[in-house]
């Protein structure tokens, strides 16, 4: 290596690599650790997860590692990601690393946290009422969760409903929300301070804006709560907001189909869903305007909370 090469490499190392230390984060119920030798990766991760940093988590569910390797000078600079000791991805661009880490974290939760019945859903909390927004990608779960959080709900998660078989409660996993381009304008219209922009490329979602709940407001993160309102949203551009009650048995079959790990629970999973759904209002929601739909859901949940309180 020439002296010039060495100088450039030294400059890049000073700007980038950290000492490879490991930090722990308690993201709601999920313990995460991140080891990295790249300061930029740490900074990007901490932009979303700094409030969750703890000295040590009781149990690490997602053990993430992002190691910068190769040389910018030689053109083989890369970020090697591992999750729970397994090779995850090799990423060429730094701005792609945070979203890969989040997906690695999702993957780890799906495979390393079987104690909860996991359903593909976003969840928020309105007073004593847990709201489950269950659906496939593109149904508008994250957008509704973000808008409801901006309107005053507490945020639990945008990807998982983690149902605890012992308490029948939803456990929080308040990871940063990944908002697709179509949702960014909606969120920005509700908050002049956020000014979100699509800054990342997320796996399977295209360009996204990242919205950590603590950046909405300090108390925007929810706690374990009993689900009382189960919603199956479907977004259709231009559609009027329309809700339809569905029977709890129909809701059960839908939640089972949307579960990531039903086969880890089987009969106990059915039993859990039955017990949860006996206490829930279940609806189908079609909407084209997320603000209007979110307000309607907030009103429904608040009414349910008042009924529960009387």
């Amino acid at each position: 290596m020439t002296a010039l090469n060495a100088a450039v490499e030294a400059l890049l190392v000073a700007a980038g690599p950290a000492d490879g230390t490991c930090e722990d984060y308690q993201v709601g119920a999920i313990g995460v650790s991140l080891r990295t030798n790249c300061r930029a990766v740490r900074r990007a991760f901490e932009w979303s997860y700094a409030p969750y940093r703890v000295h040590q988590v009781a149990r690490v569910v997602a053990r993430l590692e992002a190691r910068v390797a190769g040389s910018w000078w030689r053109g083989d600079r890369r970020y090697e990601l591992t999750v729970n000791g397994r090779p995850g991805a090799t990423v060429r661009r730094l701005d792609h690393v945070p979203s890969h880490l989040e997906w690695a974290c999702n993957w780890a939760v799906a495979f390393a946290a079987p104690e909860w019945l996991q359903v593909h859903a976003a969840c928020v909390q309105i007073g004593p009422v847990g709201v489950v927004l269950a659906g496939r990608p593109g149904s508008g779960k994250t957008t509704l969760a973000a808008v409801m959080t901006l309107l005053g709900a507490a945020y639990l998660c945008d990807e998982f409903a983690l149902l605890d078989p012992a308490t029948h409660r939803l456990e929080p996993f308040p990871k940063a929300m990944n908002l697709k381009e179509a949702s960014i304008a909606v969120v920005n219209s509700l908050s002049s301070g956020l000014r979100l922009r699509a800054s990342r490329t997320a796996c399977g979602k295209g360009r996204v804006a990242v919205l950590p709940p603590h950046r909405v407001r300090a108390d925007a993160i929810g706690r374990a709560v009993e689900p009382r309102l189960v919603v199956f949203p479907s977004f259709r551009p231009g559609a009027a907001t329309r809700t339809r009650s569905i029977l709890p048995a129909e809701a059960l079959l839908r939640l089972e189909r949307l579960s990531f790990n039903f086969l880890a629970h089987r009969a106990a999973g059915v039993d859990l869903l039955v017990r949860v759904l006996r206490e829930c209002t279940c609806i189908e929601l079609e909407y084209g305007d997320a603000r209007r739909a979110a307000r309607e859901l907030m009103a429904l949940a608040s009414a349910d909370g008042r009924r529960a309180g009387t």
Partner: peptide, 22 residues
Amino acid sequence: WSVHELGDELIVFDPRTDTTLR
């Protein structure tokens, strides 16, 4: 079978086939 009343309906889980019926 694992059988549960849910509203007016029944949910039946068959552990042999991991099938849930309504």
